[in-house]
Amino acid sequence: MELVIFVITAIVAIIGAVAMLTSRNAVHSALFLLLNFGAIAVLYLLLQAPFLFAVQLIVYAGAIIVLFLFVVMLLGAERDEEDANPIRWQAPVAITMAVLLIGEIIWVLVRQSQDGLARVGSSDSDFGSPAQIAQALFTTHLLPFEVASFVLLTALIGVVVLHQRRS
C-alpha cells in the first residue's frame, strides 16, 4: 500500500518537475511546480511529518506559487525566452554535469544503502506531531526560530522599501 502510494506520488513529482523544466510557458511551469510540491507534501505524510505537510501546502502552495503566478501574470512574462540563446555551449555542458552529478549521487546511495541508510530506532506513532514539533521548536531551537522571524521581518521591510515610490 505504502509502496503504491509512494510510486504514484514519486511519478507525479517527477512528471511535475520535468514538465516544469521543459514547459515553454511560465504559468504552466508554475502549475507543474505546484503539482510537484503537492506530491512532495503527500510524501511528507508518508514520512510521518503531518505538520510539514500542512506547512508545505500553506507556504509553498498557498503563498509561494501564488506569488509566482501573480508576478508572471502581472508582468505578462510568460514567454520570455524567445530570443536566441547567447551561450550555446552551456546546455551540453550543463546536461553532462547534471548526469555526472546524479551518477555520483546514485553511486553514493548504492554504496551507502547497506549500512548508512538503514532505519534507526523504532517508529513512534506520535513522531512529528504538532506537539512534538512545538516542543522542539520552542525549546531547543528557540534562537533560530527568533532569528527566522527577524529574517522574515527583514524581507518584509526590504520588499516595502524596494517598491516605495520615489518622488
Partner: peptide, 26 residues
C-alpha cells in the same frame, strides 16, 4: 561573461568535482 547561468554552471562543475573527490576518496 556576466551571465549568471554560466556562473551557476561553474559552481555546479565545482560541486561535481568535489563530490566526485569525496565519493572516490570514501
Amino acid at each position: 561573461n556576466g551571465n549568471v547561468r554560466t556562473y551557476a554552471l561553474v559552481f555546479l562543475i565545482g560541486v561535481v568535482v568535489l563530490v566526485g573527490y569525496v565519493v572516490i576518496g570514501a
